[in-house]
Structures are given as C-alpha cells and as structure tokens.
Simulated scan of single mutants.
Amino acid sequence: MIELQDHDALLIVDVQKDFLPGGALPVPEGDEVVPVLNRYIERFTRRGLPVFATRDWHPPNHCSFRDQGGPWPPHCVAGTKGAEFADGLRLPEDTVIVSKATGPEREAYSGFEGTDLAARLKDLGIRRLFVGGLATDYCVLNTVRDAIRHGFEVFLLTDAVRAVNVHPEDERKALEEMRRLGARFITLEALS
C-alpha cells in the first residue's frame, strides 16, 4: 500500500473532450478514465492535497495539425467545446489548470514543456506526483519523463490511463520506458 503524504499531488493529463470517443482525436476507451480519476480526486481532496490538470490549448493554426504539416487533425483548439475537460470529470474548484502547446509553432506533449508547472509544484513543496490521463503513449509519457527529470517521484495510475496506439506496440513501449525511468505503477486499490 502507498500512503498519501503532505508533499503529494495528483496530476491529470489532458482529459479533454477531443480525446474522448466522438472527439476529433479520440483515444480508444479514453472515457473510461473519467470515473477512475474521480475516485483519485476524492482521495486527494479528502486529504487536502492539490490537484493539477494539464490541457492542450492550441491556436487554430497549431503546427501539429495536418493543415500545417503536422500528424494530427485539429483538436483541443483554445476556447472550443473539444478543448473542454470531459463531462463528468469532477475537478475541484481550486484545481490548478496548466495550458500547454499554446503557441502556433511549438508542439508540447509534456505538461512541463513551455509552462510553469515545475515551479508551481516546487513552490507547494510537492515531491511525489500521481499521474493519470490521456494518452499513455504521448502526453502522459512525456509528462512523466519530464516530471522525473525535474526530480519528482512519479506514480503512474495504470487504471487511469489509456493509449492512442498509432502503432500497435506504442503503449507497451511507453510503459516500459516509464518503468525504466523509475516511475512506479499503482492502481487505486494500492492507495491508502
């Protein structure tokens, strides 16, 4: 069992409508993370621990979009319905929202890239991050990678992530890399 401590935070990665079934760039079964994340949110808020949430917040001419030569269809355009957090995701009012990939010429899969996320976490004395969200093989992987690089101990919430799997082995490779980097894998049942 892992016991929550005062220097812990929950980090929810990109659980936005465009990444759910029916969205512009759907993650298969992406909607299944929402009720599980809500249970994590309840655990963290009950202990008075902070919740952070990253979101893609793209301009309409973002470099990752196919019309601009990128690999993806337009998604999570700032201010649109697709960029909103998933219906049913019960983020607390004091959730710290971190917008990423906000400029047209720079991709940012990581919640740390081009943001003040690391500084905000460190200002709160956070040492351990519990990470869940979408997608395992892109934004979750890169966020976990950078969190470890910034010196945080990372717990991947394996019951609260889903992968895009553009290539069939992408999820497996992402999980292997996160484990190799030192992320610990847990599920809700392991959290006291």
Rank of each mutant, 00 (worst) to 15 (best):
Arg162His: 03
Gly111His: 13
Leu121Lys: 00
Ala53Ser: 06
Leu134Ile: 02
Gly182Arg: 15
Leu25Gln: 01
Arg66Tyr: 05
Glu153Ile: 05
Arg39His: 12
Lys17Val: 08
Leu124Gln: 13
Ala9Trp: 05
Gln68Cys: 00
Ser64Ala: 13
Gly132Arg: 15
Gly111Ala: 14
Val15Ser: 00
Met178Trp: 03
Gly30His: 10
Val131Tyr: 10
Ser192Ile: 12
Pro92Ser: 06
Ala163Val: 13
Val166Ser: 07
Arg145Met: 03
Val161Leu: 03
Arg66Thr: 08
Arg106His: 12
Leu156Val: 06
Ile148Lys: 15
Glu171Met: 13
Thr136Trp: 02
Val13Cys: 06
Glu84Trp: 02
Gly103Ile: 12
Asp146Val: 06
Pro92Leu: 02
Thr143Val: 06
Leu191Arg: 12
Phe44Ser: 02
Arg39Tyr: 10
Phe152Gly: 08
Leu20Pro: 00
Glu32Tyr: 14
Val34Glu: 05
Val36Ile: 04
Thr158His: 03
His62Tyr: 13
Arg47Met: 12
Ile12Lys: 09
Glu3Arg: 15
Leu4Tyr: 03
Arg180Gln: 11
Ile12Gln: 10
Glu29Trp: 09
Ser64Arg: 13
Arg127Ser: 11
Gly82Tyr: 01
Leu121His: 02
Leu49Met: 11
Trp57Gly: 06
Leu25Thr: 01
Ala78Pro: 08
Thr187Glu: 09
Gln68Trp: 00
Leu25Ser: 00
Glu105Ser: 10
Leu25Gly: 00
